[in-house]
Simulated assay, not measured.
Amino acid sequence: MPTAIIADDERLMRDQIRLRLSEVWPELEVLAEAKNGMEAVELVNEHAPQIAFLDIRMPGMTGIEAASLIQQARPDCHLVFVTAYDEYAVSAFERGAVDYVLKPAEAARLATTVERLKQRLGGAGQPPALNDLLSQLKLAMSGGKKEYLKWIQATVGAQLRLIPVEDVLFCISDEKYTRVQTEKFEALIRKPIKELVDELDPDLFWQIHRSTLVNARKIAGVVNDDRGHKIVSVVGHPEKLEVSRSYLGLFKQM
């Protein structure tokens, strides 16, 4: 039996999509509903549905941002965007990577989406170009201004957590993992520093070493050690971070 979740901040829209789906795809089981993007990511991680219907415009975390996180954790989850903004849909979604439904959802259009989903469920999963498409959609929705990460999805113990980037003190990489440190806990992600540098706001996160990023707003002080190296201390954590020679220019005034 195919399974799905629905995410929309409007209760009436969730009800309508569920009703229309029951008409055109009675075999589909809707496992849960989300009121925002963050809930959608959590529900996909919890229930592992085959399909996620995501409203593009949701408060806090948009459907595009949620889709990026879902793809990291559940790349086999098929995505359908529900939108009132066809200027995004027509130019991007019809390339075939994902499907879309315009609000209000009409049974005939949803039936077309269902047929496409059925074909994909019998195939090899999501197309490989999806991450590029999501990046293009983020750029289009932001009016051409680059959008930076607002959350980091990471493993804490046996759980996946969504960490607001403003809560991160620093990130340190080894060969396989990057440790994301907050005041309360540390988490691990499978993403190197060189990728995070491009995804995080450079005004907020400074690279101070080839393997280290630090939240500039969390810097408590900078001192020279007995070797003449600059050492950064951060608020709320005892670990000291060394600044490599390549990044000393960040601290010229200190």
Rank of each mutant, 00 (worst) to 15 (best):
D9P: 04
G123L: 05
E195R: 11
M254R: 10
R18S: 09
H209E: 03
V98E: 12
T113H: 08
A124T: 08
D8K: 00
E42I: 04
T212P: 02
T112I: 13
W206I: 02
A108F: 12
Q153F: 07
E175Y: 14
A48Y: 05
A92P: 09
A111S: 12
V214H: 00
Q50I: 07
I152M: 15
N215F: 02
S173C: 13
V30T: 06
Q207E: 13
G125Y: 06
M254E: 05
D86T: 12
K194W: 09
W25F: 15
I152S: 05
T112D: 15
Q119R: 11
E242Q: 06
L54N: 03
E106Y: 03
V197C: 08
V180F: 08
V101H: 06
V168R: 00
M1G: 06
G37W: 00
G143A: 06
E195D: 14
D201K: 01
E94D: 15
T62N: 02
P104D: 14
R161D: 06
A220N: 10
R74N: 14
R116M: 10
L162C: 07
M38Q: 02
H209D: 03
L19Q: 13
V101Y: 09
E183T: 14
R20S: 07
R57K: 09
T155N: 09
L204M: 13
L169A: 04
D174I: 12
I51S: 05
D174R: 01
A107F: 04
A129D: 15
Y148G: 03
S68Y: 07
C171N: 06
R217F: 03
L169P: 03
L130T: 10
T212F: 01
F81G: 05
E65T: 05
W151M: 06
L69F: 09
E65F: 03
E46P: 04
L134Y: 07
D226C: 05
V156P: 00
L134V: 11
L204V: 08
K150H: 11
A7D: 02
A4K: 00
I51R: 00
D8S: 09
V168N: 00
L241W: 03
E94C: 07
V180W: 02
A48G: 12
T83S: 10
S233E: 05
P164R: 00
V214M: 01
L117K: 02
R11N: 07
P202E: 13
Y177P: 02
L139V: 12
A111C: 04
S142F: 05
V243H: 01
D203P: 01
R245A: 15
S244R: 06
V44N: 05
V30S: 04
A92N: 13
V90K: 08
V180S: 11
N36Q: 10
G63M: 01
E27M: 12
A140Q: 02
L102K: 12
S22Q: 09
L149T: 02
Y88V: 12
G63F: 01
K240A: 03
D198F: 13
M38C: 10
E106M: 04
N36K: 02
P164D: 02
N224M: 11
L69M: 10
E33P: 03
